[in-house]
């Protein structure tokens, strides 16, 4: 049996022709499988939907940990703004803020687990809710968009909407205005059970 890392290397060799496609598309293989490498701030990779999806069972599930353990507590690198670690790469910030998160309980591993093997015990037929790439709705052309997702456990807006890893299309043009929720309101889901109120 190959180690997971060897497996990935083997996969890359098998996929050599595809690598050209990656380069053409501006991606590097580290986006999709290489678990020991984290891109540095200088060449920090923007979040890519397909990679984001690959690390989650469904949209809304906590992502798995895409790198090996570095022997440090998670918040050492995954701070409020993210940290570029010499020789390692850019650690994106955590979106959790007010709740059970960074400065508080540091129980990251309660929800985020590493991938130590690519084997499965039994194949799963589960198909998770896909992520939506739609932006938030606007009342009119000049209105600030409403938040298209719940803010629960995503209180640190800039974690995803600013910084080197933020995806084009959801990157804010005005990160200096720190009070995001002054203008962008949370859309209250209408399908909550029972109806709110």
């Amino acid at each position: 049996m190959r180690s997971p890392l060897a497996e990935i290397r083997h996969l890359r060799r098998a996929l050599a022709p595809t690598l050209l496609l990656f380069l053409a598309a501006g991606c590097t293989p580290s986006d999709v499988g290489e678990r020991e490498a984290v891109p540095g701030r200088d060449d920090a990779q923007k979040s890519v939907p397909v990679v984001r999806a690959a690390r989650r069972a469904y949209d809304g599930a906590p992502p798995t940990i895409p790198h090996q353990a570095f022997g440090a507590d998670c918040p050492t690198c995954h701070t409020r703004v993210g940290v570029a670690v010499e020789g390692v790469g850019f650690a994106p910030p955590s979106p959790h803020d007010d709740t059970l998160g960074l400065e508080g309980t540091r129980r990251c591993r309660q929800c985020h687990v590493p991938v130590t093997t690519n084997e499965v015990f039994v194949e799963s037929t589960f198909v998770g809710r896909p992520q939506t790439l739609d932006g938030g709705a606007r009342m009119h052309r000049f209105a600030p968009p409403v938040m298209p997702h719940s803010a629960f456990m995503r209180e640190n807006c800039l974690a995803c909407h600013d910084g080197p890893a933020a995806r084009e299309g959801i990157r804010t043009s005005h990160p200096e205005r720190a009070a995001c929720r002054q203008c962008h309101v949370e859309r209250v889901a209408t399908t909550l059970w029972p109806p709110a109120g």
Binding site: L15, T18, F22, P49, V50, A53, Q131
Partner: peptide, 27 residues
Amino acid sequence: RLFAASGAIAALSPRDQEAAAALSGQS
């Protein structure tokens, strides 16, 4: 997944295109 990530889905067969889209969550 890799094909989907590279944006090279068009190079796949229709059946694989569908599978790749499902895996990448881009449906």
